[in-house]
Amino acid sequence: MIEAYQLTKYFDKFLAVNEISFSVEPGKVFAILGPNGAGKTTTIRMLTSILNPTSGKATVAGYDVVTQAAQVRASVGVLTEQHGLYERMRGLEYLDFFGRIYHLSAEYRQKRALHLMERFGLGDALDKRVGEYSKGMKQKLALVRALLHDPPVLLLDEPTSAMDPQSARLVRDAIKELRQDARTIILTTHNLPEADELADKIGVIRRGRMIAQGDFESLSTRFVGPPTMELRTVQPLNGLVQAVGDLVTVTASGDDYILYTTPTPTETNTQVLRRVLDSGVDVLTLSRKSQTLEEVYLHIVQEDEE
């Protein structure tokens, strides 16, 4: 569980994070989106007790980030923006070093490191020097390091940024599994489809402020408007567009299709279907035209700019 209340961070007179509040339940993934320099990394660093908030409060896994810093750091696994690996060490040796820091038993850290290395496709690189790893392999090793002590909270800064599509899929699947295991996860990313796929809740930070947060549905409705429905018919619509005009807002139409929005799709869609079928036109499909997170994100940022 992570709870942040009006977290604020100044660097001298520069306001990096401005009264950010949010909470993340166990088993949930919270994606923080935002342009470079928005305050995402500073927020992660405050939640890791690396930086002290100038004001505000936060608890991570039940520990206060200021007064119980060591406990917070023992409870989180952090994938930092810069992986910061020791290039002269070998993969397994590197993990063993971090395992010792966390006081994991020799047997456990060996077993856990081997398992995670295999899990993330690094089984062949156990004894290779980290300097010889590819960029993606280094990213995976850094992620393994974050998972090594099996923390209840994961803070992942750009977890798939340097990975090829196959590796990125591997990591995304792993994050989903970790979520099922009731872990609390925060990830920051520029990859909006990834956030869409993984996040239960999304927060958008801009110039240090959390300008929007919520699940995708609520953000989409709030910033882009009601969802767009697409009705495709077998026969031409022939004036049916006007016939449903009192039920929905038609945004586009053609010979055999109509796009409309409605704030109450569950009730209205039935009525629309009934009218179309009653007029003797067969319905091919009625589907919701999905909005992408990118559209939603751009709307949010644009609205904030205005």
Partner: peptide, 23 residues
């Protein structure tokens, strides 16, 4: 993930050995 990846109590770290509580 198998048992090595998901122990029951999550963190295997003994928190009392860190910070102010450490000898």
């Amino acid at each position: 993930m198998d048992s090595a990846a998901q122990p029951a109590s999550h963190s295997q770290t003994n928190i009392s050995r860190f910070g102010d509580q450490a000898t």
